[in-house]
């Protein structure tokens, strides 16, 4: 055991042990560092998110009590309609069932709450969903929500583009009968953006995960044909 080779071997074993120990320590520190990086990344996300939202909002005139939508009509049955102005299926909904809903409103059968949500901001390069929704709040201020909303769906821009510009939104509003100065500055200032944020958040909270979503008396009408909507309204009114 006291041979020269034995001592050499022992020294090598000790060296290797020390090296392994060093490596283990480094690995531990690296792991701790990585965990820290992941936690900090999550916290950054949290703080960015909480600094983004504004809790203060003013609903436009004509909004419901909770400020989550614009009320049109005053019938006994409440119909909630969640739409995004850039959503093609919403346009389709307006084309197939818009007239029926209008008729139900004029007949005094329903009270429609329109929730112009901004779910699809990512589908335009200019957050068109948010801008259009906020502009609809401006239109509500001028008591022209329904007309403006209808015109927006008729002139719906395609997904993936820039959407309509603020100027185009203002022109559409003026065509719908709004005052160019008042409506124009309301749109340009983004006066109802915080309201749009509120409408969108509350829709998501209410488990509305897609647009259009149509609720008659709180019950979702999954296939929103004119017949189904009329039937649901009749059933709810009974």
């Amino acid at each position: 055991m006291s041979s020269r080779k034995g001592r050499k071997d022992a020294a090598r074993v000790v060296r290797e042990q020390l090296a392994r120990e060093r490596r283990r320590k480094r690995t531990l520190w690296i792991s701790l560092g990585a965990v820290l990086v992941l936690i900090v990344a999550g916290l950054i996300g949290w703080s960015v998110w909480s600094s983004q939202g504004s809790d203060e909002f003013t609903p436009p005139p004509g909004a419901n009590e909770t400020g989550t939508g614009i009320v049109v009509g005053s019938g006994p049955v409440t119909v909630d309609i969640y739409e995004d102005y850039i959503c093609p299926a919403c346009r389709q909904f307006e084309q197939t069932s818009g007239a029926t809903i209008e008729q139900l409103i004029t007949d005094g059968k329903v009270r429609v709450v329109y929730h112009p949500v901004a779910y699809l901001d990512r589908y335009s390069s200019t957050e068109y969903s948010t801008r259009a929704s906020a502009a609809s709040g401006c239109a509500a201020e001028g008591d022209t929500f329904a007309e403006f909303s209808k015109a927006l769906f008729e002139r719906q821009p395609p997904e993936g583009g820039a959407g309509l510009s603020d100027d185009e939104l203002i022109d559409i509003g003026v065509e719908a009968g709004l005052d160019r100065d008042a409506f124009g500055s309301c749109v340009r200032d983004g006066k109802y953006r915080p309201w749009t944020e509120h409408v969108t958040a509350e829709a998501s909270r209410a488990n509305v995960s897609g647009t259009p979503t149509v609720l008659v008396d709180g019950e979702q009408v999954r296939e929103w044909t004119p017949e189904n909507i009329t039937a649901a309204v009749e059933a709810a009114g009974r």
Binding site: G42, V48, W49
Partner: peptide, 12 residues
């Protein structure tokens, strides 16, 4: 909160 934190964790 989780939805806000998740993209950053994924990037990390």
């Amino acid at each position: 909160v989780i939805g806000a934190a998740l993209p950053f964790v994924e990037l990390a």
